[in-house]
Design a protein around this nucleic acid. Structure first.
Length: 763
DNA sequence: GAGCACTGC
């Protein structure tokens, strides 16, 4: 039966009048860019137009950056289409494939399509691919762009559509052979922009939280009714801003202080950030009580992922917290940086969703004009380790001449090649090895894929290691309560999971206790663990096990044979290994991890509880430490079992550790640290030397830490290893000025970390 | 000092 209401709704969308034109364009053009603002209906309608107008198409794929979007849009469209979800129209996200052999329209995350492409780079199942929300420029979207361009050469009959909001998209058309751009007028309201008279962005860095609060109070007292959305950068300052505004509100005399007091008689204040446990709660998204104004202090979640309805005023601090990979140290830096003009426009737009509104920028117009036009795409800020491995797997050996819409910095490519070589995923000619080929089957960081394979093929402990690997693949599992008492309770409860070897075994302990609890939500709440994260770890473990089975990787346990459980359930110690663990052969597990993480080996300072990255410390720079040899002091994260305050192990007993990752803000913190023996890694450290040769010809950029990374030379390998690195030097230099600015920010952070003077000389 | 923005396979 035809549902007239749905038809009327579909026909009322801004995109509807262009239906025939769009269909014609698709008929005539293999490549097409479509621009349409939120609410134009492009995401739900254009795929349906194709479905209806091209019955010969077997499969149409539509990518989204987020899982939730793929699900909700597929639901909506299948409803409009009058079919059951998973029949004609379905979606596919990790852990949840809701498609069937009948499915002709498939919504999916861009990551899913990318993984499909590693198996079939021609994407032979598809007759049309639509990359939606392209302006977000996720790492996956950018890689897909390059692949699709290549696929277009091989399969010109494949229809490729790029859909984007209206943010500087000529670039997309330029990239795709100057293809036509189709513009769908939007349906948004005017937003008046108020810049601060003279505030420079540089002077705001220490004051923007306070100024945001003051501006919110100003709007509240002087402007007509309407809710306020404030963009800040992180959890701590959001909580502080909420408290400060509450205090100010308490002191208000509404009758005298508030201009529109007849309509504005109160204030409700909410924080919102992604890790907020109560984010699912509806109150933030509901209308506030009558005569009450709502203020929401938000991170960037409110810029892209969640929409808070009814916002009339936006306050833009001008800052965002952004993660940038530092290829010279191989570490991530999480830093507060000024936003781009595009981001500022997007933030302001949040005030015009349902009616006209106003944006208050805490920075001057001049500062706005000095901002970067666009946010640096993720591909230029991320480690390319996994990306390069996938590309190699697809047979794209020459990463350099691969067409990226915005090519990553050569140093990033070089860093990825180095690390892949150290993981033995590529050989000294840059070619994928058998091991590398096997590593690419797992949806994991190549470091972890390597560990998993080692645990299965070499160390016979894969049944346990697969759990730890899954735990390392999820977001933060510890919840830190704001309340001081609860925080102490959380710290206390964490102790039961500690293991003297460190955090990898702690993660195994946590997962096993979680499993014993029946994967209970209540158990997580009691122990202050993030249930969402632990559930995700379980799903990942299951998926990894399936993949291992499919690819004949044995699942073996390192549970000690003579370990027994007494009748009363208590454990009886029969055999001890060096960690006194009664259940497992801990050493084999840690040796598995060492097969990758010898790259992240750190040695303790002789007199202080700080560590130095081994490969940096043994480079030529170590002989005479000057201001340029960036030896970063690595601190153990407070959440680590090995942190000195936790007193699980004496600092003097820690000589060598490996860590899973380092993130620096003001200082460099090692996350997930375990004690290792040098003998486990000694042999593998030789790979650094092999790598060193490649650098001798100096053909690569002359960054400082370049030298730090390498040990002695080995002329025998000179010619062979060169080619590992040869690609990168040929990458054409992009906008140097932009790049320099970006590097300056990271460099400043590194200098700050260094300035904490935990390092001077190695005694 | 002692803390991490946001996604995703």
């Amino acid at each position: 039966m035809v549902n007239t209401k749905i038809i009327r709704q579909r026909e009322s969308l801004p995109v509807f009048p262009y239906r025939q034109e769009i269909v014609d364009a698709i008929k005539n053009e293999p490549l097409l860019v479509v621009i349409g603002e939120t609410g134009s209906g492009k995401t739900t309608q254009i795929p349906q137009y194709i479905l209806e107008s091209f019955p010969e198409y077997r499969l149409i794929g539509v990518t989204q950056p987020r899982r939730i979007a793929a699900i909700t849009v597929a639901n909506r469209v299948s409803e409009e289409h009058g079919s059951r979800l998973g029949d004609d129209i379905g979606y596919c996200i990790r852990f949840d494939d809701c498609t069937s052999s009948r499915t002709r329209l498939k919504y999916m995350t861009d990551g899913v399509l990318l993984r499909e492409a590693t198996i079939d780079p021609r994407l032979g199942h598809y007759d049309a691919i639509i990359v939606d929300e392209a302006h977000e420029r996720t790492l996956e979207t950018d890689v897909l762009f390059g692949l699709l361009k290549e696929t277009h050469r091989l399969r010109p009959e494949l229809k490729i559509l790029v859909m984007s909001a209206t943010l500087n998209v000529e670039k997309f058309s330029d990239f795709f052979n100057s293809c036509p751009i189709f513009v769908i007028p939007g349906r948004t309201y005017d937003v008046a922009i108020n810049h601060h008279r003279d505030a420079k962005i540089s002077s705001l860095k220490s004051t923007y939280v306070q100024r945001s609060v003051e501006t919110a109070l100003y709007i509240h007292t002087q402007e007509p009714p309407g809710d306020i959305l404030v963009f800040l950068t992180g959890q701590n300052e959001i909580e502080k801003a909420c408290r400060d505004l509450e205090d100010l509100d308490r002191d208000l005399n509404y009758k005298t202080d508030v201009k529109y007091y007849e309509d504005v008689k109160g204030l409700v204040i909410y924080p919102i950030y992604a890790t907020l446990e109560t984010m699912e709660q509806k109150a933030i998204f509901d209308d506030p009580p009558r005569y009450t104004r709502k203020v929401v202090f938000a991170t960037n979640v409110a810029q892209t992922s969640v929409t808070i309805p009814g916002i009339k005023y936006v306050i833009d601090s001008g800052f965002v917290k952004q993660k940038t990979y530092d290829p010279t140290t191989g570490m991530d830096a999480l830093l507060v940086v000024p936003i781009s003009q595009a981001a500022a426009t997007q933030r302001a737009g949040r005030a015009g969703r349902t009616a006209s509104g106003q944006a208050f920028r805490l920075y001057s117009r001049e500062s706005y004009e000095q901002m970067e036009a666009d946010t640096v795409p993720e591909i230029q800020r991320s480690s390319l380790l996994g990306t390069v491995l996938s590309l190699k797997k697809m047979g794209i050996n020459d990463i350099i001449n691969f067409e990226f819409i915005d090519p990553p910095d050569p140093a990033m490519v070089k860093n990825a090649l180095k690390q892949l070589f150290l993981l033995e995923a590529i050989d000294d000619t840059g070619k994928l090895t058998t091991l590398g080929n096997e590593m690419s089957i797992f949806p994991l960081s190549p470091f972890l894929s390597r560990v998993l394979i080692a645990s299965a093929r070499q160390y016979e402990c894969s049944r346990e290691v697969v759990i730890i690997v899954a735990m390392l693949s999820v977001e933060e599992i510890f919840i830190t309560p704001r309340n001081v008492e609860k925080q102490m309770d959380a710290d206390e409860k964490r102790k039961e999971f500690y293991h003297p070897s460190g955090d990898h075994m702690m993660l195994l302990n946590i997962f096993e206790k979680f499993r014993d609890s029946g994967y209970g939500r209540d158990w997580c709440r009691d122990k202050y663990f993030n249930y969402r994260a632990l559930s995700m770890a379980k799903s990942i473990r299951d998926q990894l096990r399936e993949l291992m089975e499919k690819h004949d990787l044995p699942l073996v346990s390192c549970r000690l044979k003579n370990y027994q459980v007494k009748d009363d359930g208590r454990q009886r110690k029969k055999r001890r290994n060096s960690y006194q663990d009664v259940k497992y052969n801990v050493e084999t597990m840690l040796e598995s991890f060492s097969s990758s993480y010898y790259i992240n080996l750190a040695k303790r300072h002789p007199h202080r509880p700080v560590f130095y990255h081994y490969a940096s410390a043994t480079g030529p720079g170590s002989e005479s430490i000057d201001s340029n040899s960036s030896l970063l002091a690595l601190h153990i994260s407070p959440t680590s079992a090995l942190h000195p305050d936790n007193k699980v192990v004496r600092v003097d007993d820690l000589d060598w550790v490996t860590y899973h990752s380092v993130l620096y803000t003001n200082k460099a913190l090692m996350k997930v640290v375990s004690k290792v023996k040098l003998e486990w890694v000694q042999e593998r450290l030789g790979l650094f030397k092999k790598l060193a040769v490649a650098n001798l010809d100096g053909s690569y950029g002359k960054s400082k830490s370049e030298n730090n990374m390498h040990g002695n030379t080995d002329e025998d390998n000179d010619n062979k290893v060169d080619s590992v690195m040869i690609d990168a030097q040929e990458v054409k230099n992009q906008d140097d000025e932009k790049k320099r600015k970006r590097l300056e920010v990271i460099e400043a952070a590194r200098q700050r970390a260094l300035a904490r003077k935990s390092i001077t000389n190695q005694d």
